[in-house]
C-alpha cells in the first residue's frame, strides 16, 4: 500500500514535469466503514487518466470528473461522499461509510 503511494506521488510529479495538467485527490476524513484509509491518494491528469484509489471504486468516477475542473480552474475543493448525500445513489459508498476527499491542482 505504501509502495503504491510512492508510485502515485512519483507519477504525479512525473506527469506534471511532462507538462500535463495534474490533480491530486487525498482522503482527508472518513466516518464509519470506509474502503480506503485517510491519506490515500488518487492522481488524475488532464485527460482523465488516473492512478491510485480513494475508495473501492465507487466514487472514483466523480472524483476524476471534479479533478478535471480543479485542473481547469486551479481552485482546490473538498468533496464529500456517503449515504447521507444525495450523491449517494449516484456515486455512493455501498459500505455505508462517508468519506471526504480533498482535490488540489499540482502547480
Amino acid at each position: 500500500m505504501r509502495a503504491n503511494d510512492d508510485d502515485i506521488l512519483s507519477t504525479a510529479q512525473l506527469w506534471r514535469e511532462q507538462g500535463k495538467g495534474v490533480a491530486l485527490a487525498t482522503v482527508v476524513e472518513t466516518w464509519g466503514s470506509a474502503p480506503r484509509p485517510i491519506g490515500s491518494h488518487l492522481v488524475i491528469d488532464e485527460d482523465g487518466l488516473f492512478l491510485g484509489s480513494v475508495s473501492g471504486g465507487c466514487v472514483e468516477g466523480d472524483v476524476v470528473a471534479q479533478a478535471l475542473e480543479v485542473i481547469e480552474t486551479g481552485a482546490a475543493t473538498t468533496l464529500e461522499f456517503g449515504v447521507a448525500d444525495e450523491t449517494a445513489w449516484r456515486a455512493g459508498l455501498s459500505c455505508g461509510g462517508r468519506i471526504s476527499v480533498y482535490v488540489e491542482r499540482i502547480d
Partner: peptide, 14 residues
C-alpha cells in the same frame, strides 16, 4: 500543491 513541494516530498520518501 506546488511542484517544488511535491518533489521535496518524493525526495523525502526516497
Amino acid at each position: 500543491m506546488k511542484l517544488a513541494l511535491l518533489s521535496r516530498l518524493n525526495a523525502l520518501r526516497a
